[in-house]
Amino acid sequence: MEKILEVIDLRVYYDLPQGSVKAIDGVDLDVVKGEILGIAGESGSGKSTLALTVSGLLRPPAKVVSGKVLFNGVDILKLKNDELRSIRGSKIGMIFQDPNTYLNPIYTVGFQVGEVFEAHRGGSLRKYLDEVVKLFKAVKIADPERRVNAYPHQMSGGMKQRVLISMAIAGEPELIVADEPTSALDVTVQAEIVELLNEIRDRMNTSVIFITHDLALLLEISNRVAIMYAGKLVEVGKSSEMLKDPLHPYTKALLSSLRYERKKKLASIKGSIPSLINPPSGCRFHMRCPYALPKCSQVEPKLVDVNGRKVACFLVGDGYGGSDKSH
């Protein structure tokens, strides 16, 4: 299987006056052509930072400390501004969380989508109007000829998200990064948007990174899922397998909180995400983990292959978590 994206030992820190926040602290991840890779985790786990890094949109105070992000074999972290710009919007499309604030209120939606063509093919915006109408049809916006002249505040949240999606697919990208694309929407609209993304993937054979804190949704739509916790990956595997048999205690906790939710009981994982300025030693989940061993607080488990899945935990596989075998 052809890899479109390889993230290798990525570390992204935010330099704040209080110290540096280690938002991503050693992440390795691949995206295969045509797949939907889901990334799940609580808020503050680093998943949005990962999305911004992959699309080359990191802004200060965020800083890449180490690692590579290979897109079709080219490290986008090493690209010059202008080279990066020509990839953004054409080879990598980005969909954001809140359609209400990610559209500029003072331009028509048609103008804002047309800007993608203008940026990558040049010429005046006007001549791309037909293509924008076509795109609006593709993302099932009713009455597209009229809607291109609408302003964002004249549309519903779901419609605006469709506009943002049309923007992301305008350049027929090889990779779409969707950062919580459905979190700000009603449940029924959520389903429509997910279906739309699925269709787009099928039609254009685009790879999709789908980021959300909604694990149930993720397991349903993605081929593979990566679980992030406090700036690190704890488990990566096929959605179907992970749903049946979660290996990492954090994945288990996330899934069981889902099952409780269905019974209308409130279940949450005790405690909260640790400080990312001074992350705890050992496994970052050990303070909240019901199965924690003494060594979990001292030695950091590595992400190792266990039956075709990757897990970072001493409790699974050979019991060593791939770390120093003398323990």
Partner: peptide
């Protein structure tokens, strides 16, 4: 504002982002 991030994600030139958005 968030819409500036969208503008950057589209691949707009810095100048267009500054002037328009």
């Amino acid at each position: 504002s968030n819409h500036v991030l969208t503008a950057a994600a589209k691949g707009l030139r810095d100048r267009a982002i500054l002037v328009r958005h």
